[in-house]
Design a protein around this nucleic acid. Structure first.
Length: 256
DNA sequence: ATGGCGCGTATTACGCGA
């Protein structure tokens, strides 16, 4: 069982790449963020033709999330019931005995702004919701664009980013609070090379210079973490023509 | 210090992402 997450920065633009990547990497579950499509424009037929079911929650211009799955999905929930939100940033489904939560956590723009405050409140509510979900779903996974680089080793230039949005201590504390619920960062369950990132700015040739951040994550409940045998960032799509600024993260689970 | 790039919307210019 392979589960993955990818912020595609417009599914309208990136659909051919998503279909290509699924051919190359036929994961069981793929969580998408920043689809930027209203539900009436979602490319259901193309995704089903590739052998995947799909559920989605979108809006005009911004945000939007989806789960693609080769296995049946049930009990679909859109957004956090504890946090009424006009922004479409969460979709969850039960797949093969796992509760899969796909999240596009707010960016926060800059420390001290209204958007930053919204991000921290949003994360408070996410924590409380997942604490409750963990009680009813032993096998629980939170995949998505967290917009948080958890540690300095997840940042190409920690000094330059110190204290700024994506790296500030209150954001990192929110990540640790999720870990305190028992969730494990799948990527850090394994020995990894240094300077592995999941996002690079479009500007300044940041990808070629590996000036990136690791902000896309897969958190696993204890029952899934013990069954996780690998977690990798797949840089390949970032090298393609007209790429998303993010690249997929994939976890392998050995489920009975 | 600022903006660099890419996308969406719609105004060829701006908001936003990270």
């Amino acid at each position: 069982m392979k589960i993955a997450t990818w912020n595609v920065n417009s599914l309208k633009v990136r659909l051919p790449q998503v279909l290509q990547w699924l051919q190359d990497s036929p994961v069981d579950v793929l969580c998408l963020q920043e689809t930027k499509l209203t539900d009436d424009k979602f490319p259901v037929a193309e995704i089903e033709a590739a052998g995947y079911g799909v559920v989605f929650s979108g809006q005009k211009t911004y945000n939007g999330v989806a789960i693609l799955s080769r296995h049946a999905m049930r009990d679909v929930v859109k957004n956090n019931p504890l946090f009424p939100d006009e922004q479409q940033r969460i979709i969850a489904a039960t797949i093969a005995g796992m509760r899969i939560v796909c999240a596009y956590i707010p960016n926060g723009q800059a420390v001290g702004t209204d958007k930053y405050d919204y991000k921290l409140r949003w994360l408070d509510a996410l924590h409380d919701w997942l604490a409750a979900e963990g009680k009813t779903h032993e096998k629980l996974a939170l995949l998505g664009d967290y917009n948080i680089a958890p540690e300095d080793r997840d940042v190409h230039d920690p000094a330059a980013w110190a204290g700024s949005v994506l790296c500030s201590e209150p954001e990192r504390e929110q990540f640790r609070r999720l870990q305190a619920l028992g969730f494990k960062d799948a990527f850090r369950l394994f020995e990894q090379p240094e300077k592995i990132f999941s996002w690079w700015d479009y500007r300044q040739m940041a990808f070629r210079r590996n000036m990136g951040l690791r902000i896309d994550h897969i958190l696993l409940s204890p029952a899934l973490a013990t069954r996780c045998s690998a977690c990798v960032v797949d840089k390949a799509p970032r090298k393609w023509e007209q790429p998303s600024d993010h690249t997929p993260v994939v976890a392998t689970l050995d489920l009975a």
